[in-house]
Design a protein around this nucleic acid. Structure first.
Length: 826
DNA sequence: AGCACGCCGACT
DNA sequence: GTCGGCGTGCTC
């Protein structure tokens, strides 16, 4: 009904991050809808820009005469539903991002179109040309004589003219040239040639007679086509070993016809055997029933399934999806990028066939676009993918399942820096869908919310096939050193590897070498330097030779002898998987060893190839990072060794214990999946740390209770929110100045809004960031702790200071990155 | 972010 | 009158 449209324009600038109002021309009135993309004139030059319609309205508080008209409609139908638009608007506020950033995340990259401004000489140009005085204008006309209709972009590139716009404008005014806007679809639908058979099998012999007796190939093709009515041209050529000319000849004889047919680029080209529902265990059945109840009642309930490794969560997901589909609704399944392997996808495809779209980061633009369109057009009912699949454009969403919900890849590190779980929650609320989170080791945050009634908690404590949990042995590496074993492999681990290999079983060795910094620790007593204020291990900063706390800025020189036991075996730790691989190879010369980490899996299928070699027993020992810690199911693996549990434990992050517990539990879950009982060996210098002890006992709840106490005592999430603001610039001096000015203004504003706010304990910094320089840019950081009550107030202040620049601080000289509840503060 | 516009100085 | 350089301010 409305006559005005509120539009986001495709102009990436914080200054244009608002809704712009345009008039809807009378003839477009019935076609324009919310969620459509349109073309609008923008700015003084009326440059044609893409816009997304957010709202249509009758009333404006604006001078109507100033409004411009929408110039064109791009989409026949809206590409975003009202719910997804609302979700985007919510995300913008929640994560302090721009409209454009948010909607480019929600829409597939492959769908954005390019706009070209093409410049044409008018018919009458020749006569008027002689009057031109300006050299620049002459240059433009000369160029256009050769390249009529060339794009403005290319004109700029080829003719180095400074004020090209004013020259072009005066040429337009003189009636010599004209600009036309062309929309270019960046991704084209892929089409493929198919061969149709135009004869019946009965009169095949008749058809054969018409073919020259020397044309053997054509006859062969006709005979081959007996079993097909339609076949891909490429396939036909390959199968009959023929070429295009014989096929064209047959087409001329009207025996076959070649047609273009649009295809979606197929990702799953393998055929999978169909699997059927398994009979659920009692625990699975109860879990299924509770959630199913919410689905049919169309409640937007949220569930957290805490199920031990091997408890069969996936089977529950599968049967829930089946129910959702039978209600004519659709399902989204989110999986961490790292475990989005063909094996995972296979479980879904083998149950539901090809009504599945798969979205992940390694897809090409075209592939992504195709998957997105299949969802949009209702050709599939299930979308599986990494975090961005949460935006899959289903029209009647029934359920979102987030597997391994504790994984940190669910938090985006790019703008908008969204948390997939929160976004999924919001989307489920908007669309009355059910949210299911699942994990063997839920994040402390999610479990806390479940315990406090935000999520419905469902526990699954038994393994589905009644296997026992593997035995876990903790090896005290300090003792190992005392015994004179300076190797990174303890005697116990060595002998267990030996016996596993002798029994023809396989071994996984795990070492999580991540992050940039090393910590220092005493090899005799295990002492680790910690910050006296923060209960977090200090990080060794190589450039300054200091030990430093990343939370409060505390710093000291590293000790030369251990402050605890006075030993001089102070060690800077820094082993990685590569060194482990080397050492294992030296020790077990006869057994093939392979390493799987980011370095060895950069090629497209290398991930799968390594796992296949391991599955086929071409490899006996697999060394790897967390890549090997989840979802893999190798029945021959009886031993899992954790080379150094301390690596994650001593990361300077309040989530270090949580990460360690999760990793150890997940890794341990890889052992003993077949008939033989598995065992796990954890090597550590800190054998009494609670996260290691609880992991040994497979005791999640015990770990949770202890960890949540610490979080409360030190006021960390989930009891507070952490906002990290990182400032960066190549200019060290101005960076420090500006950062301090911004920081002051923020603090003053917070104090003004809430005089009771505990500035001292809630704001850390400004300090040089834990990584003070990346790619030649210096970095400073402010950390703000904000409870739920203050969060919006503080976010608002940050918005006005750091984004809208209300206080005229020269922030345009630096880059500001705001992360709300970041994965880690490093 | 672009882009126009205005102002200035330099060059024909 | 034309051209380049640079700072400022706006975009429905």
């Amino acid at each position: 009904m409305g006559i005005f449209a509120e539009i986001i324009v495709d102009n990436q600038s914080s200054n244009t991050d608002t809704l712009y109002t345009y008039k809807i021309p009378f003839d477009m009135k019935d076609r324009v809808k919310i969620g459509m993309r349109v073309m609008v004139p923008f700015g003084k030059g009326n440059k044609s820009l893409q816009g997304l319609i957010i709202n249509i309205t009758n009333s404006i508080n604006f001078d109507e005469k100033k409004l411009k008209n929408i110039s064109d409609i791009i989409d026949e139908d809206p590409i975003l539903s009202k719910e997804l638009i609302e979700l985007g608007i919510w995300m913008r506020r929640e994560y302090l991002a721009q409209y454009i950033e948010v909607f480019k995340t929600i829409m597939p990259t492959g769908i954005t179109q390019k706009v070209k401004q093409c410049i044409y000489l008018l018919d009458s140009a020749e006569e008027k040309m002689d009057d031109i005085q300006s050299n620049n204008q002459k240059k433009i006309l000369d160029y256009l004589k050769e390249n009529n209709g060339e794009s403005l972009e290319n004109l700029k590139k080829h003719l180095e003219i400074n004020h090209i716009h004013s020259s072009i404008k005066s040429l337009i005014n003189k009636g010599i040239i004209d600009i036309e806007t062309k929309i270019e679809q960046e991704v084209n639908k892929k089409s493929e040639k198919f061969v149709l058979k135009l004869f019946d099998n009965e009169n095949m012999s008749e058809a054969l007679k018409k073919i020259n007796s020397r044309a053997h190939k054509q006859k062969e093709i006709i005979i081959f086509l007996k079993d097909y009515s339609v076949i891909k041209l490429s396939e036909l050529i390959e199968m009959t070993n023929s070429n295009n000319s014989s096929i064209r000849a047959l087409e001329d004889k009207k025996m076959i016809k070649i047609v273009d047919q649009e295809v979606t680029r197929e990702i799953l080209n393998k055929e999978f055997n169909k699997t059927n529902n398994k009979i659920l265990t009692e625990e699975q059945r109860i879990c299924h029933e509770i959630i199913y109840d919410s689905i049919i009642k169309e409640f937007d309930d949220k569930f957290l399934i805490h199920g031990v490794t091997g408890s069969g969560k996936t089977e529950v997901y599968l049967q829930l999806i089946e129910k959702v589909l039978s209600e004519d609704k659709q399902a989204i399944v989110l999986i961490p990028e790292i475990s989005l392997t063909p094996q995972t996808v296979e479980r879904f495809v083998s149950r539901f066939g090809k009504k599945i779209a798969i979205l992940h980061s390694k897809l090409s633009l075209g592939e992504r676009y195709d998957q997105w369109r299949k969802i949009k057009e209702g050709k599939v009912d299930i979308a599986i993918g990494a975090r961005s699949a949460v935006f899959a454009p289903f029209s009647n969403l029934g359920i979102i399942i987030i597997d391994e919900e504790h994984e940190n890849s669910y938090k985006s590190s790019m703008n908008p820096k969204y948390d997939t779980i929160k976004v999924a929650e919001k989307r489920c609320e908007l669309e009355s869908s059910v949210l299911v989170l699942g994990s063997a080791t839920p994040s402390i945050n999610s479990y806390y919310l479940a315990k406090n009634g935000v999520y419905n908690l469902i526990e699954m404590n038994k393994r589905a096939n009644n296997q026992n949990m593997p035995d876990v042995k903790i090896i005290d590496m300090r003792y190992e050193l005392e015994k004179g074993n300076k190797s990174i492999i303890s005697e116990d681990l060595y002998s267990e590897i030996n016996s596993s290999l002798n029994n023809n079983n396989q071994v996984i060795l795990f070492l999580n070498r991540r992050g940039f910094s090393t910590f220092i620790s005493c090899r005799k007593c295990g002492y680790v330097e910690k910050c006296p204020h923060c209960d977090i291990s200090l990080t060794y900063h190589k450039n300054k030779g200091w030990l430093k706390c990343h939370y409060c800025g505390f710093a000291k020189k590293p000790p030369e002898i251990c402050p605890d036991c006075e030993s001089k075996y102070i060690k800077y730790f820094g082993i990685g998987t590569q060194r482990v691989e080397e050492i294992v190879k030296e020790n077990f010369e006869k057994n093939p060893v392979e390493r799987m980490d980011l370095d060895t899996t950069s090629k497209k299928n290398s991930h799968e190839e390594i796992l296949n070699r391991f599955r086929n027993k071409k490899v006996d020992i697999l060394v790897g990072t967390q890549m090997i810690s989840k979802g893999l199911d190798f029945p021959n693996v009886t031993l899992v060794g954790v080379v150094a549990a301390d690596l994650t434990l001593n990361l300077p992050d309040f989530r270090a214990s949580e990460r360690t517990f999760q990793l150890l539990t997940q890794v341990a879950g890889r052992a003993g999946r077949g008939e033989d009982k598995g065992s796990v060996i954890i090597q550590t210098y800190d054998p009494n740390h609670y996260s290691i002890l609880y992991a040994k006992q497979h005791d999640y709840k015990g770990f949770y209770e202890e960890e949540i106490q610490l979080r409360k005592a030190f006021n960390y999430p989930p009891f507070t929110n952490i906002i990290s603001i990182v400032f960066s610039s190549t200019n060290q001096k101005s960076l420090e100045n500006i950062t301090k000015r911004v920081s002051d203004v923020i603090i003053k504003n917070i104090e003004y809004k809430n005089s009771k706010f505990d500035i001292n304990n809630s704001i850390v910094g400004p300090n040089p960031a834990p990584i003070p320089k990346i790619k030649n840019k210096y970095r400073w950081q402010i950390l703000v702790k904000a409870n739920d009550k203050d969060l919006n107030m503080i976010k608002n202040i940050i918005y006005w200071v750091c984004i809208k620049n209300k206080y005229n601080i020269p922030i345009n000289q630096i880059t500001i990155s705001i992360d709300i509840n970041p994965n880690s503060v490093i």
